Simulated scan of single mutants.
Amino acid sequence: MRAVVQRVTDADVTVDGEITGSIKKGFVVLLGVEEADDIADVRYIADKVSGLRIFEDEHEKMNLSLMDVGGQVLAVSQFTLLGDARKGKRPSFIKAARPEKAKELYDEFVRQIKEKGIFTGEGVFQADMLVRINNDGPVTILLDSKKLF
Rank of each mutant, 00 (worst) to 15 (best):
A11N: 07
D12Y: 14
V13T: 09
T14S: 14
V15W: 00
V15T: 06
V15S: 01
V15C: 06
D16T: 13
G17C: 11
G17H: 02
G17D: 08
E18H: 13
I19N: 11
T20H: 10
S22Y: 05
I23E: 09
G26H: 05
F27Q: 02
V29A: 04
L31H: 00
G32L: 04
V33M: 04
E35S: 14
E35F: 07
D37M: 05
D38S: 15
D38T: 13
I39P: 00
I39M: 12
A40G: 11
D41P: 06
R43C: 00
Y44A: 10
Y44S: 11
I45M: 15
D47C: 06
D47T: 14
S50L: 10
G51S: 15
G51F: 11
L52G: 04
I54P: 10
I54W: 10
I54V: 15
F55A: 07
E60I: 10
N63S: 15
N63L: 04
S65H: 03
S65F: 03
L66I: 04
L66M: 02
L66D: 04
M67N: 10
V69C: 07
G70F: 02
G70W: 08
Q72W: 02
V73C: 11
A75N: 02
A75E: 06
S77G: 08
Q78N: 13
Q78S: 04
F79L: 12
F79C: 11
T80E: 08
T80I: 10
T80L: 09
G83C: 02
D84K: 04
D84G: 01
A85E: 09
R86E: 12
R86G: 07
R86M: 10
R86Y: 09
K87M: 10
K87G: 08
K89G: 07
K89P: 00
K89V: 13
S92A: 12
S92K: 03
F93T: 06
F93P: 06
K95N: 15
A96E: 02
A96I: 05
E100F: 07
K101N: 09
K103Q: 14
K103R: 15
E104R: 04
L105K: 08
D107E: 15
D107R: 00
D107Y: 01
E108M: 09
F109S: 03
